[in-house]
């Protein structure tokens, strides 16, 4: 059963990765990153039940991960709004300051 969860997480992770790299809208990219984080959480919880030594530690880890993800989402959205104010767009392909 464990491998099914892991496969499920892998699928989710890859879809998130694809979305993060292809979508132009910065909000969607943030969403895709949440998707990837969720895939990781799923892995952690699956191991906490089906791992060699089942324990609650995996769930604790997930809990912290969720907290950090929430903080990341909040800060990410704030940065996005500030950027939008400065540049008038949320399309990441128009944020090319790194080239200059």
């Amino acid at each position: 059963m464990l491998s099914s969860y892991l496969t499920m997480a892998a699928i989710l992770f890859c879809i998130g990765l694809y979305g993060a790299l292809v979508k132009r809208n910065a909000v969607i990219i943030l969403l895709s990153i949440e998707l990837m984080l969720n895939a990781v959480n799923l892995n952690l919880v699956a191991f906490s039940k089906y791992g060699v030594v089942p324990s609650l530690t995996g769930q604790m880890f997930t809990l912290f991960s969720i907290a950090v993800a929430a903080a990341e989402a909040a800060v990410g959205i704030a940065v996005l709004i500030a950027l939008f104010r400065a540049r008038g767009t949320v399309n990441v392909d128009e944020y090319d300051e790194m080239r200059r």
Binding site: A20, L21, V22, V92, D93, D96, E97, R99, R100
Partner: peptide
């Protein structure tokens, strides 16, 4: 290659 697009860098990284 060095176009400043973070997503391109991401693809290359992957």
């Amino acid at each position: 290659v060095q176009n400043g697009q973070i997503q391109t860098y991401g693809v290359v990284t992957v």
